[in-house]
Design a protein around this nucleic acid. Structure first.
Lengths: 251, 251
DNA sequence: AACCATGGTTCCATAAATCCGAACAAACGG
DNA sequence: CCGTTTGTTCGGATTTATGGAACCATGGTT
């Protein structure tokens, strides 16, 4: 089914900052003759997968993607309930929260809740980060058996630092990110899973480093952990480990 | 391109509460032989458009839809800026806000911002409402020339009530919904457009009817209208009309 | 254990769609 | 207006998609 594959490749070009694209660009990036690119994108327009922006030559994903992303979120009880839990913590503390999932070596945000606090965080839905470099990613990786983790990162140049860091996160029950992905911003994350579906999500809060004391931070970790523990009990997650403050690191 | 059309039809089944679907259901709903449905969905799984939920037979849209929805939102300066404007009003008043777009006779939400107030609103992204029955829809319809509006609703059974209602909304510069789509909930909406791309979005706030006084409501309408006016000026919207309280109705 | 129903997958000959380069059309900028 | 760039259409050979039949997997019943 080459047409479907080509269409998916076109759709996959939208990411990493690419919100709109022309026929010529698609042809160049996918190595398609311009006639093929033009015809494919015409067909994708006609079935709603793409749409043009006004009368311009720029194409973007079609509006149906809003429905599809919503259906994806709603398809999982775990994601739905985790989102509710994070929303509640966001309301409680006023900081931005979100839930993330892992896809291979990357994490991506599923839904976010903007806080009322001073920090304005651009939504990171649609962004993919290396999992080991983000609090959410580390929390999710910590759920993997050692063998699976080693296999996932086999041959990775930073293997020496990744494995111990994830192990520390696993022992601690949460992960912390200090100015790691965004200057001035700290993030805390706890992951929980559903053995019935094999899914796992990371619950996360982000806040400005400068305005949150260590005591505040611990309170938020505890709140996030309590919500996650509730989810873990509800879904019967055998891997879940509640945050443990007795051995502090920044994994 | 029949395969692409079929794939799009499969994807379009996700909506109106359908978050997951099996091969047999797809075959039945699209009138496809089960062999065709099976093969099509297998190909869609392989290119990431669909994924199964754990080991079950249930299929959902693939996670790539999160990226595509984000790209859709980011592809439009108007949507981005309108979202920021609504987020600010949500923070200011604590009520849930969102922006919507119109697709034919329907409206759908693009992005929402959950408030801190008592009202817990389930995200309506992924829901489609008849435009004329929603505040956002009426605000957007009010932007259409009379002839376009009449053509859009030609033959509609409620034409006698739709046209005057939209006209009233047009005269007033905003629309109001009182317990119309959700019991106990009121919504206010103002629409603004970008003549460069031909796009229009409705900015909207929803709040519990019981806790918001008419004075509060007017203040929120004014705040939303001021933000929309700023957008209208920035994008050069010749149709925009600021909220006008001198002739109150509930259009 | 054998059988049945249900849901899903694979096979294969035929039908339909796709492909690419060339020709053509449209849009843009000087 | 003209030249350049971008995008679209055409058509026959090639590739892919199709549907019914056969097969497979799973769970429940006798």
């Amino acid at each position: 089914m080459s047409t479907l594959t080509n269409a998916a490749e076109v759709l996959r070009l939208f990411g990493s900052g690419c919100h709109a694209i022309t026929v010529t660009e698609v042809g160049a990036r996918l190595g398609l003759p311009k006639a093929s690119a033009s015809r494919l994108m015409k067909a994708m327009r006609e079935c709603g997968m793409l749409e043009t922006i006004g009368d311009s030559r720029q194409h973007r994903p079609g509006a149906m993607m809003l429905d599809l992303a919503a259906a994806f979120r709603q398809s999982s009880s775990l994601m739905r309930d985790a989102a509710e839990a994070v929303a509640a913590v966001t309301r409680q503390y006023g900081h931005t929260g979100y839930i993330s999932i892992r896809i291979g070596q990357e994490v991506t945000a599923v839904v976010d809740f903007e806080g009322t606090a001073a920090l304005r965080v651009v939504s990171n839905i649609g962004q993919h980060l290396p999992a080991h470099l983000a609090a959410t990613g580390r929390a999710l990786l910590a759920r993997l058996p050692e063998t699976d983790l080693a296999a996932l990162y086999a041959g990775h140049s930073d293997l020496d630092t990744i494995l111990p860091r994830i192990a520390a996160c696993r022992a601690q029950g949460y992960s912390l990110s200090i100015q790691e992905t965004t200057p001035g911003v700290e993030g805390i994350s706890v992951a929980v899973g559903d053995p019935g579906t094999g899914e796992a999500v990371a619950l996360c809060l982000v806040y400005p480093h400068a305005v949150v004391t260590p005591q505040d931070r611990d309170a938020m970790i505890a709140a996030l952990g309590a919500r996650a523990a509730d989810l873990a009990q509800r879904f019967g997650d055998p891997i879940f480990r509640a945050p443990d403050f007795s051995n502090r690191t920044t994994p």
